[in-house]
């Protein structure tokens, strides 16, 4: 039995993913006025889900640390200069991603609290 189980590892993976998505969404907002810019996004949910399924199917080599959180282009056109950023949608995504990240951190903190009390190191 390992100290950090697969749930905790997936939580860590999700935190990495949410941080990578935060960068991608910040990039979109920073380039809201760049002509010809196409928005990028990180679909870390699908990537993690795939990793979780591979872990469940017994593929021991898969770890949430190996999941690739590369920003993917998401072409669309919003403005006549070829820019593909909808500022309102980006702001909504950003708020959602921030809250999701904070929720993940809370769950992680609670699980670490349980571990700490088991070790006899209550906070």
């Amino acid at each position: 039995m390992e100290l950090f189980d697969s749930t905790q590892q997936l939580l860590m993976g999700a935190l990495h993913g949410a941080a990578a998505r935060q960068s991608a969404l910040s990039q979109n907002l920073a380039n809201a006025n760049t002509a010809g810019y196409q928005r990028v996004d990180v679909d870390f949910h699908s990537a993690l889900q795939q990793a979780a399924e591979e872990m469940r199917s017994g593929d021991a080599d898969v770890s949430p640390d190996d999941v690739d959180f590369t920003a993917q282009a998401d072409p669309q056109q919003m403005q006549v200069d070829g820019n593909g950023v909808d500022v309102d949608v980006e702001a909504a995504n950003l708020a959602q991603n921030g809250l999701e990240y904070q929720a993940l951190v809370s769950v992680m903190g609670a699980r670490m609290g349980i571990l700490q009390s088991a070790i006899g190191m209550p906070r």
Partner: peptide, 26 residues
Amino acid sequence: SASRAYEANTTAMQTAKQMFTKTLEL
């Protein structure tokens, strides 16, 4: 347009800061 885009960037910065603070609370 520049002023609104500036605000959007500060909002993104604020969110990142909140996320970071939350992690430090761990």
